[in-house]
Amino acid sequence: MIDLLASRWAYVAFVVLMIVGLYMMIASPNLVKKIIGLNVFQSAVFLFFVAAAYVAGGAPPVVPSDGGGGPYASPLPHVIVLTAIVVGVSLTAVALALVVRIHEEYGTVDEAVLEEVADD
């Protein structure tokens, strides 16, 4: 266990963040906090990719023309995370726009109150 924490702490952090994010989405009645939970969950996925791409002593993959100079970190996971961050930002924007609309319509962002109001 200690060994796992010492050598694979980034993966442990990934799992912890993922569970925290999921818990926030499920347990918090506040819609804005649910969206924050979603962001935490997505950040966990980003951490997983970055942690998997880590190479001890790895250099950015700018290879000189005569080759050599390794070890290099793989650029692919980093590009994936960049793209996923962009996707995440646009999703957050749409989600917040919807929350603004819900607040205008019902005057609340609390899920429990919302259920009562919407049934009337």
């Binding site: 969206i35 999703l91 609309r101 319509e105 019902y106």
Partner: peptide, 14 residues
């Protein structure tokens, strides 16, 4: 642009 569809869309989004 109704309230109910916004709630449904947010649920779907999450």
């Amino acid at each position: 642009r109704s309230g109910r569809s916004a709630v449904a869309a947010l649920k779907y989004l999450i």
